[in-house]
Design a protein around this nucleic acid. Structure first.
Lengths: 362, 362
DNA sequence: TTTCAAAATAAAAACGTTTTTATTTTCCTT
DNA sequence: AAGGAAAATAAAAACGTTTTTATTTTGAAA
């Protein structure tokens, strides 16, 4: 099997090379490089100088074996299962980018572990913790009763989740206040006169989908109204799901006058569907989207969005994981963000009720 | 520093545990597990059985130190530099997904190395090869004279590039036939009567941007025409760039009647710009897009696209890297794909030349 | 039956670091 | 000046595997 050694013909300097060069022992050199106080300042300076001069870099494999640490920060990432399954998980690029920035300058590398289903995600998480394939783990797609969180808390294995479960556990996490955002979007539409509001949501087993429904309902109840739960659709975060859901909602006898969309992908599908049945946003129907990559800035017609830059979440995930792997209390590593509303439409009925509304006949 | 050992209270079984359990020596056990022919079948079976029974998993760190291998497959991924820099590199999720699928079942983990600029990408590649941070490398964003390729070929360090440079080197790569695709798109528009064709392209230092221009020009020349090179714009692959370029092109005295777009992100921006200046695709202007995540299926109005599922490219990248790390000749690890055209518009002038064309006054 | 060679297994070394234990040096007190 | 304790450095062990070298066992031939 090919060995890709550098072309200089000699291996990189090791701690033995440094020992031969300086006259100090391997143990002293190791302690000096680690900043141990049992080494004098003069000795430390001499060793650091020699290390710089020789271009010494500690070998990660030697360190890993002795310390038992992997120096890997693992991230679970969904494997999209079929070509053409467009835009599934595209926000992961920015999550990984944020995490990568947080890890920059640390000893840690970013290791991506793909999974195909939620059960597979649990199995991968179990294997990472059990076999010590990484020193810490980041994952998303949190369920209300996510067993990964229970398992990792019990194993005392460092992790940070993007999202929160609904179990009374203390663990590091970063999240968006989905209940608040859903409430704000829904309240805006109710204040604009809407009563038949559709919610294009994530799959209801996902914790934040439940949070979205809670916020949706709270807005109605605060207005003394019954929530239009018959107009709630839950599915995957694809443009196709957005489109199919929209077409289904507008086939009904009393279709929505407004839609709240879970993300930018479903929104694209929603807009595509509305266009195909001749409904104009801002005139025939109002659309509010949640967007974490700000791509809805380019949607035509423009839509009001609740925008949360996901790369910031990614950076915070990485920062928290480093702290958690360094032994910090997870109770101090929890943060929930509120997205910023970008109003691009008035989102109100604007005298529309008197006009005849086209519906899709079945 | 917290040690996340499993809660069973005992460490995972090591080869020493297996030795104590079976009565065989560590060396015999290692050879048996590796499939060495110097061990008898009976001995091997007994050892494999005991390994299964005890749930033995070889420790990657012990293996790594002794063999000198990292069991890491590195991928260079751009770090998006600012929040709001939307949709930059979103296709990486599907590339990583494809690579992850290819690596599944192998001993290799996917390690993501972020970079901020091309020079940073070169520095990271140099460090990965020089310090043996990984056993192989995958990267994209190939330049015509990409120094990463030259350096890694000289170092004989296993890698696969997504894209080709223009140097006479032999190395593993996966690519799309950009010259062919650009030619096909442009030829289609020329056949439809277009003469003023805009090319919303990638930055011209990128190898495939040059390939696109080559194909663009070849289509004109084959039709006995001069290419409309004044309508070629090169920049980053963002919706913003697509929009800004389009607005600039339509400010000109003789604006384009058709646009060829480098990817789905710039196309979104292009459509947004056209909508904002009142131009209708299929009527006032024709748009052909290159798309590797098939999201343009949801664009409204629909546009003709050249579609190449990028996850397939990702899988092939992973497959080739495993083969390359196993010592396979890079000359046998090269593949170029041709995207599939999905016609959603006739893309011809259709009697439009007689109509007055709105232009943007400066 | 004995001897020798091949096969099979075991012992030891190695990878490169960190940590533990041992030894040497230095400084202060009597 | 000598002795003892603290500081500083060195030697050895350890991590868990693979590989090299050594030893034992087995089988075949004389």
């Amino acid at each position: 099997m090919a060995e890709g050694r550098s072309t200089s013909g000699r291996s990189s300097p090791t701690i033995k090379t440094l020992a031969a060069h300086t006259g100090y022992s391997i143990a002293t050199i190791s302690k000096a490089l680690r900043g141990s106080p049992v080494v004098t300042d003069a000795t430390r300076e001499a060793i650091l100088s020699a290390a710089r001069e020789l271009g010494y870099q500690a070998n990660a494999r030697g360190m890993a074996l002795r310390t038992g640490k992997t120096y890997q920060a693992a991230v679970l990432m969904p494997i999209t299962s079929a070509a053409g399954y467009e835009w599934d998980g595209v926000e992961y690029t920015q999550i990984l980018s944020g995490i990568s920035q947080a890890l920059d300058g640390s000893d840690y590398q970013l290791a991506v572990h793909g999974y195909r289903s939620f059960d597979d995600a649990c199995a991968v998480a179990r294997r990472i913790a059990g076999q010590r394939l990484a020193d810490g783990l980041i994952f998303s797609g949190v369920l209300a009763d996510d067993e990964r969180i229970a398992m990792l808390v019990e194993a005392d294995f460092p992790f940070v989740s993007l999202g929160r479960c609904r179990q009374p556990l203390v663990y590091a996490h970063v999240d968006v206040d989905n209940e608040w955002a859903s409430h704000a979007a829904t309240a805006r539409l109710i204040a604009g006169g809407h009563r038949r509001i559709g919610l294009i949501n994530a799959a209801p087993r996902l914790s934040y989908a439940l949070d979205r429904i809670d916020g949706f309902c709270r807005a109605f109840r605060e207005a003394g109204l019954e929530p239009s739960l018959d107009l709630v659709k839950g599915g995957d975060l694809t443009a196709r799901f957005g489109r199919d859901s929209t077409l289904a909602l507008f086939k009904g006898s009393v279709p929505p006058t407004a839609l709240v969309c879970v993300n930018e992908a479903t929104t694209l599908g929603v807009l595509s569907a509305l266009g195909s049945i001749g409904l104009r946003v801002g005139e025939d129907v109002d659309v509010i989207a949640y967007d974490d990559i700000n791509v809805s800035a380019y949607f035509n017609p423009p839509v009001t969005t609740f925008y949360q830059p996901i790369e910031l979440l990614g950076r915070r995930l990485g920062e928290f994981l480093l702290l958690r792997m360094a032994g910090e209390d997870p109770a101090g590593l929890r943060e929930v963000f509120r997205p910023e509303m970008i109003g691009r439409q008035p989102d109100d009925l604007g005298g529309r009720l008197s006009r005849r509304r086209p519906t899709l006949e079945s």
